[in-house]
Amino acid sequence: MSAVRCIDLCKTYRQGDQDIKALDHVDIEIVEGDFVCLSAPSGGGKTTLLNAIGGLDILDSGEVWVAGQRIDCMSKGELAGLRLKQIGFVFQAYNLIPVLTARENVEFVMQVQGVPADERGCKSEAILEEVGLGGLGDRRPAEMSGGQQQRVAVARAIVSRPTLVLADEPTANLDSKTSGELIELFAELNETHGTTFVIATHDQRVMAYAKRLVKMLDGRIVDDIDKRAG
């Protein structure tokens, strides 16, 4: 079964009297356990595509299937449930909950899922350590640097072991060392748990890890390289 399947997606934004095709008849299928990098120049439609896969945005036309379910006609509540159980998001703008500390942000999804407190504590502690934020768990987002917030966002996305991780520029604010560590972490999850990754990025090091490289331009997929195939 494919993890993600998009059929003929179209999304147009109106800006002034100009129509911008953020997604222009996009077809893509991603198998389970894949590690896909989406690359495109700024404005190429990466974020729009990730949002579409996560069921966050309303599309003009096309079908989106995630884990065998068609999601473009689900209700908001159903979509929320799907995201809660299956999808981890890392947003381009970190998007942490400002009133919660780093640890609480990381625990949030598990808490909504109903994971018991001690299990949550262990997991969040471990994952914060892994992203290099051991000891910063009690800080609120406003008290952290951009890179630290981004790592909290990554930790939050992967801590509950979703089957699909959608990451939008997860390394944009990181130095090469930390971003390298982060990618190692992704790769390891991908290897050991078979988590499917779809990562929008400009970062060459990230692309180096990709099993598949998808290039977009002006809302269209212009190149699709399966690196395993050679």
Binding site: K76, A80, R83, F91, L96, I97, F108, V109
Partner: peptide, 15 residues
């Protein structure tokens, strides 16, 4: 903004 985040993390609108 915040509501957008928690919804995208999987909190239902009802909640």
């Amino acid at each position: 903004y915040e509501f957008g985040i928690v919804m995208s993390l999987g909190l239902t609108p009802g909640r």
